Simulated scan of single mutants.
Amino acid sequence: MPYAIELFLDERADGRVRQIWGALDTHGISSLGSIPDTHYHPHVTLSGFDHGDPTQVARALRPVLVNSVGMPLVLESLGFFLTDEAPVFFGVVPSPPLLALHHAVHQVIEPLVAGIGPHYRPGGLLPHCTLAVGVSDRARVLDVVSRFPAPIPARAAGAHLVQVPGGHHSIQLTTA
């Protein structure tokens, strides 16, 4: 089962993203939070992989991620991936601390896992917080999201190793 290494957002930013998820749902755009049988949290993904022992990966990542709690994350732009899944997202400012953390995570996991997605490798990361997938009406998304103040200042509230799709199983990697 594939896994993602995610930074969950602080309570205030989490609440703001969930408000936007709710507004998208109200306007006929299925948000990440409304996908049936899932348990997603607003998050920024540091990496994802298809194969590896999650317990071993979690043990190796904990020392790397211990200082991630409190890291500033600024959700500043609205974007769309032009793929079959058609996700819409808030782009996260790729700050030097975020990129350094991303690089450190990869140094640890690359010997332990297989199937790291190309968009999550160092040099290829576009940090983001997904709002919805399967978006066909980008203008409607822009209309809904532009009603909310931006940028959204956030802090990492914790790091988790999350089973995807669905977010049903999560291993907490840090404590606040």
Results as ranks from 00 to 15, higher is better:
Pro2Ile: 08
Ala4Asp: 12
Ala4His: 13
Glu6Gln: 13
Leu7His: 04
Leu9Val: 01
Leu9Met: 03
Arg12Pro: 10
Arg12Phe: 14
Ala13Tyr: 04
Gly15Arg: 15
Gly15Trp: 13
Arg16Lys: 15
Arg16Ile: 11
Thr26Lys: 14
Ser30Pro: 06
Ser30Val: 13
Ser30Asn: 10
Leu32Thr: 01
Leu32Phe: 09
Leu32Gln: 08
Gly33Phe: 02
Gly33Ala: 07
Ser34Asp: 10
Ile35Thr: 08
Ile35Asp: 01
Thr38Met: 07
His39Ser: 15
Tyr40Val: 11
His41Val: 07
Pro42Arg: 09
His43Ala: 03
Thr45Ala: 13
Asp50Ile: 13
Gly52Phe: 07
Gly52Glu: 05
Thr55Gln: 14
Gln56Thr: 14
Val57Pro: 01
Val57Ser: 01
Leu61Met: 09
Ser68Ile: 02
Val69Ala: 14
Gly70Leu: 05
Gly70Val: 03
Gly70Glu: 08
Met71Asp: 02
Pro72Phe: 13
Pro72Ser: 10
Leu73Arg: 00
Leu73His: 07
Val74Asp: 07
Ser77Gln: 13
Phe80Val: 12
Ala86Trp: 07
Pro87Lys: 03
Phe89Asn: 01
Gly91Asn: 05
Ser95Met: 10
Ser95Arg: 10
Pro96Asn: 09
Pro97Thr: 11
Leu98Cys: 06
Leu98Asp: 04
Ala100Asp: 15
Leu101Tyr: 02
His103Ile: 05
His103Val: 08
His106Asn: 07
Gln107Phe: 06
Pro111Val: 08
Leu112Arg: 12
Ala114Cys: 09
Ala114Lys: 14
Pro118Arg: 05
Pro118Ser: 10
Pro118Gly: 05
Tyr120Pro: 00
Tyr120Met: 03
Gly124Lys: 14
Pro127Asn: 06
Cys129Phe: 02
Thr130Ile: 07
Leu131Arg: 03
Ala132Arg: 02
Gly134Cys: 08
Gly134Asp: 09
Gly134Ser: 13
Arg140Val: 10
Arg140Phe: 08
Asp143Trp: 10
Val144Gly: 00
Val145Asp: 03
Phe148Thr: 04
Pro149Arg: 03
Ala150Val: 11
Pro151Tyr: 08
Pro151Gln: 06
Arg155Leu: 12
Ala156Asn: 07
Ala157Pro: 04
His160Gly: 01
His160Val: 15
Val162Lys: 03
Gln163Ala: 15
Gln163Cys: 12
Gly166Ala: 07
Gly166Val: 10
Gly166Asn: 11
Gly167Val: 00
Ile171Lys: 01
Ile171Cys: 06
Ile171Arg: 02
Leu173Trp: 03
